[in-house]
């Protein structure tokens, strides 16, 4: 076990993947000499050279589109999108080519591309730097979508994502980049699995990315008031691994789903719909959600209002318990 920040854990995961497989390339804006605006690729250009760590021209469609071409040629590109709000110029390539190539070629052309996206708010940034667009990718057949929440997962999930033969949209909780945690000697779980990160008996709380820490803190606060929350880190948003959630809800009878993203037609709606299909007879309360609002991300002085925090999670937990 080694203790490191989430950013460093990603960095060492990328490094390990690059050492293991010479076909792994890192590409994106400012990922070379600068090491990325969050320093996630720090030192990689120096150690692996400009042939494997590509400072690209400023164009996201270019980054994704050429990564698809490189993958067709047998490389395993790991693309960095600088901020969540800047993925959209590349969205066409993601949806039209990256997601569909395997299907269109009847499996003859796999495209093992990873698209890393720092996501979520809470860093006091200007517009387009704090968004949670994961549902826009989870909705697209052919893509896998995952979100890490802590250094251990960051390190191992990025390695697993690079090893995966499917395209993976890899969300990184940017406001947690500088938080430290232990990284295990081997992968703690499969890439497409959810995990119970805190056991409890009264209410199940399913969450992912930056809100896992928030929900764990809420669980600690709830415990001091005599309520026991079971917290599940979904980790994989598409496919969803809901077995642990269903098993948990069968015991607690209550589910709260938390996310920073707007609630409408989202990952949280999907979780709610599927859990009620599976757990209709054991649910004691409707599945409730605590999310961002169905509005554009606000100016940062309002982000504490927009983002679900400990109080809002507990408020919804209380509402669940009141049924």
């Amino acid at each position: 076990m080694t203790t490191m920040t989430l950013a460093k854990a990603l960095n060492s995961g990328l490094r390990a993947a690059m050492e293991q497989d010479p076909r792994v390339l890192v590409m994106g804006e400012d990922v070379g000499k600068l090491g990325g605006v969050f320093r996630v690729t720090d030192g990689l250009a120096k150690d692996f050279g400009e042939q494997r760590v590509l400072d690209t021209p400023l164009s996201e469609s270019g980054i994704i589109g050429t990564a698809v071409g490189l993958a067709i040629r047998g490389f395993r590109p790991v693309c960095e999108i600088q901020f969540d709000g800047f993925v959209f110029p590349g969205y066409d390539q993601i949806v039209s080519q990256l997601a569909k190539l395997r299907f269109r070629s009847q499996g003859k052309v796999p495209v093992p591309v990873v698209v890393r996206i720092p996501f979520g708010g809470g860093i006091g940034a200007v517009e387009h730097h704090s968004e949670s667009p994961e549902s826009l990718f989870a909705h697209v057949a052919g893509l896998k979508v995952v979100a890490c929440s802590n250094p251990d997962d960051a390190h191992w999930m990025i390695r697993q994502a690079i090893a995966s033969d499917d395209p993976v949209i890899f969300f990184e909780p940017k406001r947690r980049y500088w938080e430290k945690g232990e990284v295990s000697e081997s992968a703690p779980a499969g890439l497409y699995s959810s995990r119970v990160v805190r056991a409890g008996t009264d209410v199940t709380v399913a969450c992912y990315g930056p809100l896992v820490k928030t929900c764990l803190e809420a669980a600690s606060a709830a415990e001091s008031e005599g309520r026991s929350l079971e917290v599940i880190d979904l980790r994989s948003l598409s496919p969803l691994d809901l077995d642990p959630v269903v098993a948990s809800v069968r015991r607690t009878g209550r589910l709260v789903v938390a996310s920073e993203a707007p609630s409408e037609s989202s990952v949280t709606s999907e979780v709610a719909a599927r859990v009620q299909e599976e757990c209709f007879h054991t649910l004691e309360a409707p599945v409730l959600r605590v999310t961002g609002f169905d509005t554009p991300y606000p100016p940062s002085r309002l982000e504490e209002d927009y983002l679900p925090d400990l109080d809002r999670v507990l408020d919804v937990v209380d509402r669940s318990l009141e049924f």
Binding site: F293, P296, P298, L302, D305
Partner: peptide
């Protein structure tokens, strides 16, 4: 001054849905 929280919900649409109205009122 910081804006008030109602700013989050204002001018998202010309014609706001009842659901958004409710989100604002709740918050």
């Amino acid at each position: 001054p910081d804006p008030g929280p109602e700013r989050m919900f204002s001018e998202v649409y010309a014609d706001r849905s009842a659901r958004l109205e409710a989100q604002q009122a709740d918050y």
